[in-house]
Each structure stands twice: as C-alpha cells, then as structure tokens.
Amino acid sequence: MSTLTPPVHSRSGPRIDLLNPLRNWLDHLEVRDRTFAHLTCRLIPCCCPFERDLSLFGHTLHIPALCKLNPVYDQLVSLRFRALAYLTDVCGEDVTRYIC
C-alpha cells in the first residue's frame, strides 16, 4: 500500500518561472517564411561559440559550453532546427552552409 505525501514547498513558497511565457512562445513559433528561416539560421549558431580548449604552459584548460547557462537555449536550438527543416523540406534548399 502506498501513501501519498504532500508536495514539498520551500520557505519562500512556490517558484514562479518568469521566462516560461518566452519559452512557450519560442516553442510554438512556426517557421513559414524563407527569409525568417534564413535569418534564424544565421543568428542562432549551430554550436556554442564559447566552448574552448586552451593550452597554457603545456596544460590544457577546458572552458565548458556556457550556452547551457542560457535559460532559453533549448528553445532557440529547437527553433533553428525547425528553420533548417523548413528550408530543406518545404523550400528544397541546400542547408550545408549552416551546418558546423
């Protein structure tokens, strides 16, 4: 027999996600225009531009992908993917120039 436990709340109460409306808007944004799709693919990079391996005095220092700290990173990557799919499937264009 299982027992139900009440949800755990922090002392400050339930958390409010202020970026949730922006995330939802980006998730539901449809790519319907070739110009918008090209602009999206140019503005959103295919890989994180901040991830680096630095070599200092014979030691390698890895700087992690700081894009993961962006609270809407997953939604932007998804939007870029939808734009690439639109250009390929609907417009029949070659999108290799946008691939890293």
Rank of each mutant, 00 (worst) to 15 (best):
M1K: 07
T3P: 09
T3G: 14
T3A: 13
T3D: 15
T5F: 09
V8R: 13
H9Y: 15
S10A: 14
S12N: 14
G13V: 02
G13N: 01
P14E: 15
P14Q: 14
R15G: 05
L18C: 08
N20T: 09
N20W: 11
N20Y: 10
P21V: 02
P21I: 02
P21H: 00
L22T: 00
L22C: 02
N24S: 13
W25C: 05
W25V: 05
W25H: 09
W25A: 15
L26I: 03
D27T: 01
H28T: 06
V31L: 02
R32L: 08
T35Y: 12
F36W: 12
F36V: 09
F36H: 15
A37F: 02
A37S: 05
H38L: 07
L39Y: 11
L39K: 12
T40W: 04
T40M: 00
C41N: 08
L43M: 15
L43G: 07
I44S: 08
I44M: 07
C46Q: 13
C46N: 14
C47A: 14
C48I: 00
F50A: 10
E51W: 07
E51C: 09
D53Y: 08
D53C: 08
S55M: 11
F57W: 11
F57N: 12
G58S: 04
H59E: 13
H62K: 09
I63A: 07
I63G: 04
P64W: 01
A65S: 14
L66Q: 09
K68A: 12
N70E: 10
P71A: 01
P71H: 01
V72E: 06
Y73P: 00
Y73K: 05
Y73N: 09
Y73V: 01
Q75E: 15
Q75L: 01
L76Y: 03
L76M: 08
L76H: 04
V77R: 11
S78T: 10
L79R: 01
R82Y: 03
L84M: 05
L84T: 02
Y86T: 01
Y86D: 00
L87A: 03
C91G: 04
G92D: 03
E93V: 02
E93P: 02
V95P: 06
R97K: 09
Y98R: 03
Y98S: 00
C100A: 10
